[in-house]
Simulated assay, not measured.
Amino acid sequence: MTDRPLALVTGASRGIGAAVAEALSDTHRILLGGRDAESLAALAARLPDAEPWPVDLSDEAAVAEAAAGIDRLDVLVHSAGVARLGEVAGSPAESWRANFEVNVVAVAELTRLLLPALRSANGHVVVINSGQGLSAREGWGPYAASKFGVRAFADVLRAEEEGNGLRVTSVYPGRTDTEMQQAVVAGEGGEYDPAKYLRPESVAGAVAAAVLAGPDAHLTDITVRPRPHR
């Protein structure tokens, strides 16, 4: 149904982003943001009213061109991200820049470009943050700093735009069973056990709860942690 609200989900080719797209697909039309066009097309084929939005968020010109085609947007979910970890002593400037470019700058720029469309719909911006955006751990410096940065971005956006009808939610998942998590555990030299981690669908459920909350409710910050015993 074309009159359903429209949601754009970045990082939708896999992991939390794909799970969020599926969780919202019963109530929203979905734009599936990401770089893997093949994965986006496969997901779009499974969802009732979805289409790929293949854009490299690090390409400012491409992002601006793609965003210009959206004049009304009900939900923007920022799920795309990178995790370049390391101790401060061993993390060169490139590691810090890589995290900040995707986890902060790309989030801020896409939001800025889409603010008119979001304001038109009294829309909702959801930022998938991390437990590292609340409490930084040793060895996670560049990534944690970027997550603290995007937390500040979301707080400022909320303060500036709530009067324009926007809702802004930060979601802080604990460690989640994704390809990114597998790479992190491999880098740490650990053995990967998916039972230790959140399922992407559980994080997506928290996003859906915020998005589908009644118009009187504004869920500003949601923390989701894996249960040690299930």
Rank of each mutant, 00 (worst) to 15 (best):
M1I: 01
D3M: 04
A12L: 03
S13D: 06
S13K: 04
S13L: 08
I16W: 03
G17I: 03
A19L: 04
A19I: 00
A21C: 11
T27V: 10
R29P: 05
R35F: 04
D36L: 03
A37Y: 05
E38W: 01
E38Y: 00
A41W: 00
L43G: 04
A45L: 06
L47K: 07
E60K: 13
V63T: 15
D74K: 04
A80P: 11
V82S: 12
A89K: 07
P92N: 11
R97Q: 15
F100V: 13
F100K: 00
V102Q: 13
N103V: 06
P116G: 04
L118H: 08
L118E: 13
L118P: 06
G123F: 11
V126G: 02
V126R: 02
G131Y: 08
Q132M: 12
L134C: 00
S135C: 05
S135P: 00
R137I: 02
W140R: 12
A145F: 10
F153C: 08
N164P: 00
L166C: 02
T169Y: 06
G174E: 13
D177E: 09
M180G: 14
M180E: 06
Q182L: 12
V184H: 04
Y192A: 10
A195T: 15
Y197E: 11
S202F: 04
S202W: 09
S202Y: 07
A206Q: 12
A213F: 03
P215M: 03
D216L: 13
D216W: 10
L219F: 14
T220V: 14
T223D: 12
V224S: 11
R227G: 05
P228Q: 08
R230K: 07
